[in-house]
Amino acid sequence: MIRDITLGQYYPVDSVLHRMDPRTKLFGTMVFIISLFFAGSLAAYGVATVFLIFVIRLSRVPFGFMVRGLKAILFLLLISVSFNLFLTPGTEVFRLGFLKITWEGLRLAGFMALRLIYLVIGSTVMTLTTTPNQLTDGMERSLGFLKRVRVPVHEISMMMSIALRFIPILVEETDKIMKAQMARGADFESGNLIQKAKNMVPLLVPLFISAFRRATDLAMAMEARCYHGGDGRTKMKPLQYERRDYVGYLVCAGYLAAVVLLG
């Protein structure tokens, strides 16, 4: 279940996409997400599909890894698709009691499904090809201007980087606690939604306690290694644009223009 979230799971291979500057990739992801909201025709989605396939091939990450993240949004996907499917007025195609499906509904539901799926895959491509540290570095640099209005950009990016690092650890821990509680007769599967939520308590309490303990430990370890905020800090991997990044920006801009034009 939650094991399937691939967000924050860097896949280490050497590809153009891996070597690209995180700022370029952030920009690219943003462009891709925006483009999905502009797209309203088959042609536009076609372009988006081609672009996505191109990027996935470029990343050299096995396709299976991209799709894994989808399981987590399956529920959301089902809800939004069925809402669109049944509640859009228009030419009727099929009717079962009070439920009716319209052409417009089909079209909208299809686009909505594609949009969500592409959204997840698109951002997964970025997190699979960018180490969280690079990612937060990229954000820190791109959002550096916010420092002037006293937004703690460095601190936020450090927090995100740490959160990303601990996701797999906490997921593993959840699994362990779940098994331990199941061995003592806890039941996470049966009952209705409220029952299920209630049954989560013996899972969440130990998880939270452990997370706090880890946080204390980590804070101490960071201080022991002389961490004292962003001031006076140097970078092991300073961000520097290369030729491939300029090409990347151009490709992204071209893609966005194509989608917007095709509507």
Binding site: T131, P132, N133, S161, I162, R165, L218, A221, M222
Partner: peptide, 9 residues
């Protein structure tokens, strides 16, 4: 060991 490693690589 888990609670003192900050980097993801």
């Amino acid at each position: 060991p888990d609670n003192q490693i900050i980097g993801n690589v």
